[in-house]
Simulated scan of single mutants.
Amino acid sequence: MAQSTLYSRVAGTGSYLPPDRVTNQELAERLAKNGIETSDEWIVARTGIHARHFAEPDVPTSELALIASRRAIEAADIDPQSIDLIIVATSTPDYVFPSTACLLQSKLGIKSHGAAFDVQAVCSGFAYALATADSFIRGGQARTALIVGAETFSRILDFNDRTTCVLFGDGAGAVILQASEEPGVLSSALHADGSYANILCTPGNVNGGVVAGSAFLHMDGQAVFKLAVNLLEKVAVEALEKAHLSADQIDWLVPHQANIRIMQGTCRKLHLPQERMIVTVGEHGNTSAASIPLALDVAVRDGRIRRGQNVLIEGVGGGFTWGASVIRY
Rank of each mutant, 00 (worst) to 15 (best):
I87T: 07
V88Y: 03
S91P: 10
S91L: 12
S91C: 10
T92E: 09
T92C: 15
P93H: 06
Y95C: 06
V96E: 06
P98R: 07
L104P: 02
L104C: 08
S106I: 02
S106M: 05
S106P: 01
S106G: 11
K107F: 00
K107A: 02
L108D: 03
G109C: 08
G114D: 12
A116I: 09
D118G: 12
A121R: 01
V122R: 14
C123P: 01
S124A: 14
S124K: 00
Y128R: 04
A129D: 04
L130I: 09
L130H: 02
L130Q: 00
D134E: 12
D134I: 15
D134M: 11
I137S: 12
R138L: 14
G139L: 05
G140V: 03
A142Q: 01
R143L: 03
R143Y: 03
A145N: 09
A145V: 10
V148Y: 14
G149M: 15
G149D: 14
G149E: 08
E151A: 01
E151Q: 09
R155E: 08
I156V: 13
D158R: 08
F159L: 12
F159D: 00
T163E: 09
T163N: 15
T164A: 04
T164L: 07
V166W: 10
L167C: 14
F168Q: 04
F168D: 03
A172D: 00
A174W: 02
A174M: 10
L177R: 03
Q178A: 12
Q178W: 12
S180V: 03
E181R: 05
P183N: 10
V185A: 01
L186Y: 06
L186M: 10
L186E: 02
S187T: 05
S187K: 07
A189W: 02
A192Q: 06
D193P: 13
G194D: 06
Y196Q: 13
Y196M: 05
A197S: 09
N198A: 13
N198M: 03
N198S: 14
L200E: 01
L200Y: 06
L200Q: 01
C201Y: 07
P203I: 06
P203D: 07
G204K: 02
G204C: 12
G208F: 12
G208A: 15
G209R: 15
A212S: 14
A212M: 12
A212I: 11
G213E: 02
S214V: 04
F216I: 09
L217K: 10
H218I: 05
H218W: 04
G221P: 13
G221L: 15
A223F: 01
K226L: 07
K226C: 01
L227R: 14
A228I: 00
A228W: 00
V229W: 02
